[in-house]
Design a protein around this nucleic acid. Structure first.
Lengths: 218, 218
DNA sequence: TACCATAATGGCACCGAGTGCCGAAAGGAA
DNA sequence: TTCCTTTCGGCACTCGGTGCCATTATGGTA
């Protein structure tokens, strides 16, 4: 999740009419309107008008109204971060480090990111759409897990790890949104550690397990 | 997931025009058309026409075209099954048993269930919509986990468990669909056991962990 | 049997997202 | 200028979904 594409990558100067706006600019306009009037009550016409473009043009920048909420993800970066650690680093540690890094956002970006994630996690239409947006994200994690576990990609364990890691991130984000002062990095870290350790822990006030480890506290 | 509502619960005989169809009948008609023509290429008009009702009436039975694919879930049953085991049964064992039980389907139901899940997991619009449909399902698991862990509902760990368990089920279902002969119960069982045990297992060919347990094999 | 309250039906008009088509605008290069 | 390329944006259309309301079917009651 997170990790917006850095730069427009300076174009060399092509022929033809110049683009009259940019995805980033449209996203800003859209988020402002969503914030002010709510996602459902903002029509694509509203956004286009506010951005000074035609409605038809909006759909050349974003495939749907939903998509305008998402920044662009640089999945290559996630993949690179996963592979950054050698095979001596345990799989879940590598995943945790990569995910934390991927979700690191500067303090000045935080308010916008918060609003964006509030929309994504609370507006039903966006909540639903997120499944599609995160499919690739999940498959990156899945691919890494496949390599590390030695299982073929597409088999149960890697898929499970991909799904579960995504679930953990969503749970962490939900917690983050619920508490204004919360630290996203810490929440992600906790969630992913819990996931790595497994949920087979004794209930409060139950007999101790056969092998005592150093499980993180809940 | 799964577990359709059993009976229409014999009505006492009220005044007024009788319903001209039923949710179940509409679902059958819709699934047939989706199967034949594909989900996107089937319009609500098509379904209504095939069912011999007006388009407007269709939306009185299902809130959306998407919803026609889902059977109705009896979440009360899931909740009951979770609580069926006493507190001496470990949390993840109780969850596993309840989920397996909830997803038990008779052999005659299997083909229909398979087609249904194929649609849900493969058609993008339905895949997206599923997030909303399973929100309540997840919150049932989350509530149980909250009680068992002693954490307040809505806090990180129970949420994480809800998300992760759902993720595990989805991974199992995907495997099930990918292989015609696969046994759903066994896949769910494996996925949930892996999840319970955690993913902090040694990579193939790495040094043994400090405490050797009886982790399930991958 | 006539009437009435009730509940479901379905047509109609409308909104908004998304798409195919195509001519017009804008800019670089010959 | 002329030509080529690219983007723009209007128009018309499809489809999902909703509010409104007259119509129809049904059971109960006078």
């Amino acid at each position: 999740m997170a990790e917006t594409i850095p730069a427009p990558a300076a174009e060399p100067a092509r022929a033809g009419r110049r683009r009259s706006t940019s995805r980033a600019a449209l996203e800003r306009v859209a988020l402002e309107l969503f914030d002010r009037d709510g996602f459902e009550h903002t029509t694509v016409d509203d956004i286009a008008a506010a951005a000074g473009i035609g409605r038809r043009t909006f759909f050349r920048y974003y495939a749907s109204k939903n998509d305008a909420v998402w920044g662009e993800f640089d999945l290559e970066a996630l993949r690179a971060r996963l592979e950054a650690h050698g095979p001596q680093v345990p799989m879940m540690d590598a995943i945790r480090a990569a995910v934390l890094d991927f979700n690191r956002i500067g303090p000045e970006e935080e308010p916008r990111h918060r609003r964006r994630m509030e929309l994504i996690l609370r507006v039903p239409a966006l909540q639903a759409h997120s499944t599609l947006k995160y499919a690739e994200w999940r498959s990156v994690v899945e691919g890494f897990a496949a390599r590390r576990t030695g299982e073929p990609p597409g088999s149960l364990l890697p898929r499970l790890i991909g799904s579960a890691v995504l679930g953990a991130c969503i749970a962490a984000y939900e917690q983050w949104l619920a508490d204004d002062g919360a630290d996203l990095q810490e929440l992600l870290d906790r969630a992913l550690r819990e996931l790595a350790a497994g949920f087979d822990r004794p209930d409060p006030g139950a007999p101790p397990p056969p092998a005592a480890g150093d499980r993180p506290r809940a």
